[in-house]
Amino acid sequence: MISQINSMRQSVSLSNILWLETRNEILKTFRMPAFVIPSLIFPVMFYVFFGVLFNQSGADGNMSHYLIATYGVFGIMGPALFSFGVGVAVEKDQGWFAVKRCSPMPISAYFISRILTSMIFGLIIVLELFIIGAVFGDVVLTRSQWILTLVSLLLGTLPFCVLGLWIGLTIKGQAAPAIVNLIYLPMAFLSGLWIPLGVFPEFMQNVAWIFPAFHLSQMVLSIQGLSLGFDLIWHLLSLVTMSAIAWLLAARAFNKHA
């Protein structure tokens, strides 16, 4: 029996599991129009209003450039926070998380599939922004600036996945959408994603340091030289530290459910 089970392990295809897990996660997400439509449209719609139509004043005439970075951050945050924060909370409460954990599913597949789905979602939003920015917003960047912006944004989903996971494992499914929105929207505003932070009073600029969205947006803005000018290492360190703390809290919550 034991040798039978050892051979079982070898014959399970991890890449096949990951493919099906991710396929199901994507199908599941894209079949919820109440989630998909606002997530795909809001960041772009806001960008059109504030970055394209009313972009004459502010940020030294660089509004369309500034906002392409910050709405990019806003856009990738949403899918990550909702997929993990709301998705995990709901599946946990429905007993579905328990069913999966009793099955021989590798737990990594559960998380990786959600990370990939969030990234694919984020990719669509960022590409929408790029096209509108380049065509209607007169955003001119070098090829390496475009690529660097895209890559930073996609990697930037990770801290929000971890933060979302902690939230999802901690709160009740029913309360999850409200709580995630209560974190998502104020954090976006206070991190300067909608209005450049330079306009804010100094006190609020200091408060922004507690938000991962602020640090990510500063890193992305620095690609175009539009950040507040702090050394990048501080933002990177802050993001890594915050992710690590959220990871530890998530791991603690996870073990409680084991």
Partner: peptide
């Protein structure tokens, strides 16, 4: 399909 992929046979 997904759950079947978790098992070896």
């Amino acid at each position: 399909e997904l759950f079947s992929s978790y098992y070896s046979s």
